[in-house]
Amino acid sequence: MTEDTHTHEPAATAELDCERCDARLIDFAYAELEDGERVAVARHLAGCSRCALEFCRLKADLDGVLEAAVEAPPQAVRRRIRAEVERSFGPRWWHQVAAFWSRPIPAYGVVVASLIPVVLWVATSLRPGSYGGAAPVAEVEPSTRPPALTDYDSMVPLLPEDRPL
């Protein structure tokens, strides 16, 4: 066995002996040690070739597990999930409208463009005699106005010509 190598290099590994380092090696590999212990193990590994070799073997085994275990699903699965997620979370038409309006330049452009026909229509309607505008009312002399008819009844016979109203 290599027990003799456990006791060498005392200067470099004064804070942590090989036995205590070995007990912490798995936690060290899993990155689960507190800062102080992590530094102590790292310092020990830097000074002890046997523990460093043991750590390399452990890390290789764990990395091998990770490499062998990961696996990509087929692309069709991604497309299916994306379609479902898009249905649930994808941007709705009102989100798109809100996003559009939140951008200043296009929003102001659209406002100006939509106001142009309104302004033109108002301008042309205010001009006299133009299309769509109200025709000017002709002033009528008060003397030429027809007499106002009151209490008109179609069943009453017409008055004779000579009879004054």
Binding site: V70, E71, P73, R78, R82, E86, F89, H95
Partner: peptide, 19 residues
């Protein structure tokens, strides 16, 4: 509603979760 976020999450986890 940001689908880019879905793509990022999916890329991050697809191999590990499926594995």
């Amino acid at each position: 509603g940001h689908m880019d976020a879905f793509d990022a999450l999916y890329d991050r986890y697809e191999r590990r979760l499926y594995g």
